[in-house]
């Protein structure tokens, strides 16, 4: 099992890296003040991990330039990959996760989706801390081309004000 897991992780990382080479650009982010927010992650063992935008940015960070259904003009989104977040919490191999927003909106993301389309957990937009009025402070973002071409991706997966991740 660990061998399989390692293999899967490696493949995922290689794949994510190749995809990142297309749309996601690794970036070093200088520390800035973020809005008060937390992404609580319920681990596979039941432990809860709370990550602020600053905590999230401690992982490898990437920049994605794209539009969203609510932005006609492209914007630079900075943040971490969802796969990195899930791997950090031991959730990379679960079948699906439930993501809950601050306003109690909830959606389910299947593993096939994050294996097919890289999802950025954005904490900054256009070099600024992500505000709630811009659908921050923590927002799930996909490259618009990937979003349109994927048969699995839906608008509901682009969660804004994300607050919690649970195993479905």
């Amino acid at each position: 099992m660990p061998v399989r897991l390692g293999l899967a992780v490696m493949i995922t990382c290689l794949w994510a890296a190749s995809v990142a080479a297309d749309n996601f650009r690794p970036i070093n982010l200088e520390p800035i003040a973020h809005a008060d927010a937390e992404l609580a992650i319920m681990g596979a063992d039941g432990a809860e991990l709370r990550l602020s935008p600053t905590d999230l940015e401690a992982m490898d960070t990437y920049r994605l330039r794209t539009t969203t259904p609510w932005r006609e003009q492209p914007a630079d989104f900075d943040g971490v990959l969802l796969t990195d977040v899930l791997q950090n919490s031991g959730l990379l191999e679960v079948d699906q996760i439930r993501v809950i927003a601050e306003n109690d909106f909830a959606t389910v993301i299947p593993r096939a989706l994050w294996e097919e389309v890289p999802i950025l957990v954005a904490t900054r937009v256009n070099d600024r801390a992500h505000s709630r009025r811009e659908r921050g402070p923590i927002q799930f973002v996909m490259a618009m081309d990937d979003y349109r071409s994927s048969s699995l991706a839906a608008e509901s997966h682009l969660v804004w004000m994300a607050a919690r991740i649970e195993v479905e």
């Binding site: 306003n103 709630r132 659908r135 004000m161």
Partner: peptide, 16 residues
Amino acid sequence: RSAADFLFVRTDTFRR
């Protein structure tokens, strides 16, 4: 402020 932000985003979403 948080509720105001929710309403802002909601109204924007509603409008779009």
